[in-house]
Design a binder for these strands. Structure first.
Lengths: 259, 259
DNA sequence: TCATATATAATCACATTCAATCAAATTACA
DNA sequence: TGTAATTTGATTGAATGTGATTATATATGA
């Protein structure tokens, strides 16, 4: 397959060939490289040492392996909490509202992170998000991904505040999937005013607004108001939601789906 | 294929031929050039030195290689990649240029990622970045962190393109630490036009521009131009940088620091 | 665990290439 | 034509890359 390579090569050129060979084979032995490039083991080792210094490959006893080959395994290991069944069900239900070609907003929060994970193989979408966690979930592959710009709020790992306005003003969203800390029949509330500001702005830029929140959040009131229920088109929650509350929301024109 | 080339040529013309030959072959030895151009090794070496000063090619023991040939791979971001000593030293040197209270921009790339890591305990700064990796590095604690908003480029894990403009227009930077794929005495180049666009914009918004690049990148020419060396205040690189090239840059008013 | 085989690192010697210097040739300009 | 400046080529000592040798370290199998 690989043929003998001509005469005197310049060192960097030979090193490039070594790197190519290592990459192509995934892993290769020193002797094999010696045969292919017609140089001594000492030279090959020196080349490998240099290449390892650049991080292009990894030396092992007997030869070298490509850097890429090494990290096939440990890609996603930072799973923190096992999402509750409710959150997963809610996220799966939200999928029903996403259509091919949509521009979708994914808000911060663990429920929304579940949704992001479900979009990993949907390349025919544009996902806009302010959540670093959601972005990380989709950073390797998946839909076209657009991050809001602005200040990082460490606690929630989301991008929030006035600086998010500049970008949001220039785009339009088909559907926004929002989270919240608490909701009452009137309003959505959250801990941080900067975060509330961004949420409100996002909802105003979206054709449809979906609110995803497990039933535990019903009745919780936090510090900063991020909008009111009138602006929500559909509320997806679990079956733990009080009947009375659901009825009240439906009276206001909100579609409520319980899973 | 390449035939003997006539008789005595004027120096600049011959140098152009040398450059073409180097480019065509990717790498070529001094003797080969001597044969082809019918001049002595000394002359070829002088030509190569001049051409290296412009960053058009890179001299190596035995001959010269074109920038492209040296480093075709646009850095796949490996989490496990061991940062070379050069990159770490360059990053540490860059620290000297950061003062309390500064608003600092951190570009994408592995060298800049090293710099970001060094800022983890500097809470008296504002860091602006388009790099998801740098953001992740500082996401748990550290300086005030602002992310650019825009489209994620998966290959480099950076946020790039026209959407980054909206936020950049509203802020000013004290100092921008920039990376690049390749640089010559004239220009900085990078693989992706969207990325180039953002780099250029960032540099225009910053009081001071620092370029961080290991010497391997000198002479490399990539696809999209992201600015020219005139816009760089200080260039930090390692001691492998060719003397001739450094001299040329200093003549242009760029401060060059080698570590 | 030990023994054996293999791979590596360290040292050295050799060959090649390079930088510096100087002399010769060419060119520029009056 | 004459003089100075530049370019080129040769020579030499220094530097660098390569390959062989030997001692150490690492894998493999009983």
């Amino acid at each position: 397959m690989q043929t003998e390579i001509g005469h005197k090569n310049l060192a960097p050129e030979r090193q490039k060939q070594v790197l190519t060979l290592v990459r192509d084979h995934g892993a290769i032995r020193v002797d094999t490289l010696c045969d292919m490039l017609s140089v001594s083991p000492a030279t090959i080792r020196r080349d490998l040492e240099i290449l390892e210094g650049t991080g292009a490959l990894r030396r092992v006893h007997g030869g070298a392996v490509s850097g890429r080959a090494l990290l096939d395994e440990p890609l996603f290991d930072d799973k923190t909490e096992v999402a509750s069944g409710e959150k997963q069900r809610i996220a799966r239900q939200a999928l029903e509202h996403i259509h091919a070609g949509d521009t979708v907003y994914i808000d911060g929060g663990s429920t929304l992170l579940e949704l992001a994970a479900l979009l990993r193989d949907r390349s025919n979408l544009t996902v806009v998000t302010n959540s670093l966690r959601a972005a990380a979930e989709l950073s390797a592959a998946g839909p076209r991904l657009i991050l809001l710009g602005g200040e990082l709020r460490r606690r929630s790992q989301t991008i929030t505040g006035p600086l998010t306005r500049t970008l949001l003003q220039t785009i339009s969203l088909d559907v926004a999937f929002m989270g919240t800390i608490g909701l009452t029949a009137d309003s959505l509330t959250t801990t941080d005013p900067g975060e509330a500001y961004t949420k409100e702005l996002v909802m105003s830029r979206s054709k449809r607004v979906m609110l995803l929140a497990d039933s535990q959040k019903i009745g919780v009131v936090s510090f900063a108001c991020s909008g009111n229920l009138q602006d929500v088109d559909t509320f997806i929650t679990d079956k733990g939601a009080p009947e009375a509350f659901v009825k009240q929301l439906r009276k206001k024109g909100v579609v409520v789906e319980t899973v």
